[in-house]
Design a protein around this nucleic acid. Structure first.
Lengths: 129, 129
DNA sequence: TTGACCCCTGACGTGGACGTGAGGGTTCGA
DNA sequence: TCGAACCCTCACGTCCACGTCAGGGGTCAA
């Protein structure tokens, strides 16, 4: 039910230091036990994975902090009428992500083309030998 | 035909310092004129755009340096029978790209869900008012 | 030939996401 | 009760992708 930081680190593959850093940055809010140890609840593993994905995607922590509350779907409670500025920011981040996806997809496809060509070349070289 | 670093910077929107850095890191190899000025050829603009896309996607320069030679397609000259090790490396990078694409796509879709929900909420709030 | 505007090479500064001790408490099995 | 294995909070170090400044030269129009 409640895991400490070492176990969460094991389960997520994220270093203890990084987890503490995420708390510093306000991305996660573990409870504390009587002795001061951090106590992570059930959703922690999934939350950390989501944060990792976004950081690896190049989103800075301040942006992640802003949009995290909204990533749990519309079911999650959100401000009655979300402020227009934040909406714009989120939309901007969405478009940025889209741009990056297109760029990465293009590069991946290029690598695919190369790999297929190289493998068929290797095959013809084999049959020739 | 041949542009200098300032013009390339203008055309790509990438700072002069960044372009010099890309050369330091071996990502681009401009020629030099008699007075020592860098001279960039025709493909430079496209090459820089490609590099930018990969850096913005979180790929470190040492990785970009490795896979850049293979991004120009099978038409580009490549080792007669590409060595198996490099093939494995390129395949690994391909999978890495794929992983990032999936992560980014998931985050983008989550933002989409939020944006749609938020906008519809704003609309209903409007009509209610 | 002077000034404006390019370009060059070091070399130090910076911001983000951690790594890495230092110094010290807690828990638990032998 | 003692050692090993956890945990805590500072706080400085690091790596990467540049920004920025210093010091110096090329080029071209007025």
């Amino acid at each position: 039910m409640c895991v400490r930081i070492g176990e969460l680190s094991q389960e997520t593959g994220v270093s203890v230091r990084a987890l503490r850093y995420y708390e510093e940055e306000g991305l996660i809010r573990p409870a504390r036990s009587a002795n001061g140890y951090r106590e992570f609840g059930d959703g922690a593993v999934e939350a950390v994975r989501q944060i990792r994905g976004m950081i690896e995607s190049g989103l800075p922590t301040r942006i992640i902090r802003e949009i995290l509350p909204y990533l749990d779907g519309p079911a999650a409670l959100m401000p009655e009428v979300p402020c227009a500025y934040m909406l714009g920011e989120v939309a901007r981040q969405r478009d940025l992500l889209d741009q990056r996806i297109r760029s990465l997809t293009g590069n991946r496809d290029a690598l695919d083309v190369y790999l297929r060509a190289a493998r068929s070349a290797a095959v013809t070289a084999d049959t020739a030998a």
